[in-house]
Design a protein around this nucleic acid. Sequence first.
DNA 1: GCTTGACTTGGAGTTGACTCCAACTATTAT
DNA 2: ATAATAGTTGGAGTCAACTCCAAGTCAAGC
Lengths: 131, 131
Amino acid sequence: MAVITIKEVSEKYCVTQDALRYYERAGMIPPVTRTAGGIRDYREEDLAWVELALCMRSAGLSVEAISEYVRLSRLGDGTIKDRLALLQGQREVLLERQRQIAGTLDRLNYKISRYEDALKTGILKWKKEDD
Amino acid sequence: MAVITIKEVSEKYCVTQDALRYYERAGMIPPVTRTAGGIRDYREEDLAWVELALCMRSAGLSVEAISEYVRLSRLGDGTIKDRLALLQGQREVLLERQRQIAGTLDRLNYKISRYEDALKTGILKWKKEDD
DNA sequence: GCTTGACTTGGAGTTGACTCCAACTATTAT
DNA sequence: ATAATAGTTGGAGTCAACTCCAAGTCAAGC
C-alpha cells in the first residue's frame, strides 16, 4: 500500500516529526490522510500543504497567519476574497521585513568595509564611533 | 545637567523602557552612563549603541550575536579580526534570510495573481492545487 | 503470538526575546 | 519636609514556536 510515513516526510523536508505533528495540530496544514490503523500517510495533497507551510515558515510568516489561510481554504470557494486579502497582507509583512534587512545590510556592509580597511592598513586609528 | 532619561530614549526610538533595560542587561549595549544617583543618562555614545542594537534587532539578528559584538568591542582593538568575522557571519545570515523571503514572495505573488484572476473572471474553476 | 521498533496522543518543558511586577530609591514640586 | 513622580533592581511571567516525554497502539519479522 506504500504508506508515506511521517519519518519519510521529516527526512525529505529536513524537519522533525514533532514539528510535522505540531503543524497539523496548529492547523498550519489540514489533517493528514491516515491508514485504517490511524497512522499518517502523506498523500500528494498532504505533501503539497507541508511544502507550502514550510515555505511560508522559512520566510518567518507566523503559524497563526498560515493556519488562518488553511482554515479559510477548507471553508471553500466562498473565502477566496478573504484568502486574497490575507495573502496580500502577508506579502506586505514580507516586503517590510525585506526593507528592514536591506537597511541593516547596508549598515553591516559599511562597518565590514571599515573593519577590512583597518586590518589592511594596520589599525592606525580606531575611533569609538567606528565600533 | 540635562540628563537624557530612559523615558526620553524609549519615546525617541519607540521601544519600551523595559526593553532598553533588558538590552543593557543582556549586553546588547554597553552599560549606560549613570548620574551620581544611579539613574541612566543616555549620552551620545550610549544612544549610538542603542540605535545600532535596534537596527540589528529590527532585521532579526539575535540578541546573542549583537551582545557578542558588543563584548568584543569592549575588549579593544585586539578583537577587530573577530568582530569582522562576526559581522561577516551575520551578513550571511541576513543574505540567506533575504533569499528565503524572496523565494516566498515569488510564491506568494503567484498565488495572489491566481486569486485575483479567479475573482476577476468569476470563480469558473478552482482546483485543490490552487489553494 | 510475541518481540521489536515505529507511530500515536496529550501534555509538559524549552528557548528567545521580551514584559510585568514589587519593593525600593532618587528627583521635583509645593 | 513631604508628597508625587519617575527611575532602579532582581526575578517572575508571557508568548511563539517548537521539542521532549510517557504511556499506549500498530505493524513487521520470526
